[in-house]
């Protein structure tokens, strides 16, 4: 089987996942900046996590990076759909790997350092894991896609 282009179902999954991630990160960011309490359900760990010392990273609120991350995936995917530019394929392979590693670090912080779980942060970590799985498919077919 020769693959010249990224199949549509892959593109659609990336778009859907990145949109969900973007909504999630945007909710976290905006609630933070307007000072609203997160609606967290019964577990109640959200504010503990989002108000912790680890909620900022290099001077910026962590979910802002999440917004930028999902937004850059959305934009790259749309540019790819439009232009079928092969450089974008490379970008779509690198971005989810970075996102996944960063999520891994955040999950580690929640489980072992802050000892509280924020469902919105965990949702984002799940989304970046799914994006990584799709990324695996791209890497597997890297040669076929690039040539």
């Amino acid at each position: 089987m020769s693959i010249q282009k990224i199949p549509n179902w892959i593109l659609a999954s990336i778009l859907i996942l990145a949109s969900l991630g973007f909504i999630d990160a945007t909710y976290l960011t905006i609630s933070h900046y307007v000072g609203a309490d997160l609606y967290c359900g019964v577990s109640g760990g959200c504010s503990t996590v989002t108000n912790s010392a680890y909620s900022t990273f290099m001077g910026m609120y962590v979910s802002v990076y999440g917004m930028l991350y999902y937004m850059s995936i959305l934009i790259s995917t749309v540019i790819y759909i439009d232009t079928k530019n092969k450089k974008i394929i490379k970008l779509l392979m690198i971005l989810p790997a970075i996102g996944f590693l960063f999520s891994l670090y955040l999950v580690y912080l929640q489980l072992f350092v802050i000892n509280a779980i924020c469902i919105y942060c965990m949702a984002s970590a799940s989304i970046s894991t799914l994006l990584l799985i799709i990324n695996m498919f791209l890497i597997q077919n890297y040669k076929k896609l690039i040539n």
Partner: peptide, 13 residues
Amino acid sequence: IALVIGAIIAVTA
């Protein structure tokens, strides 16, 4: 993108 940001601001503000 604009819709998501706008809707969330409206809900949380």
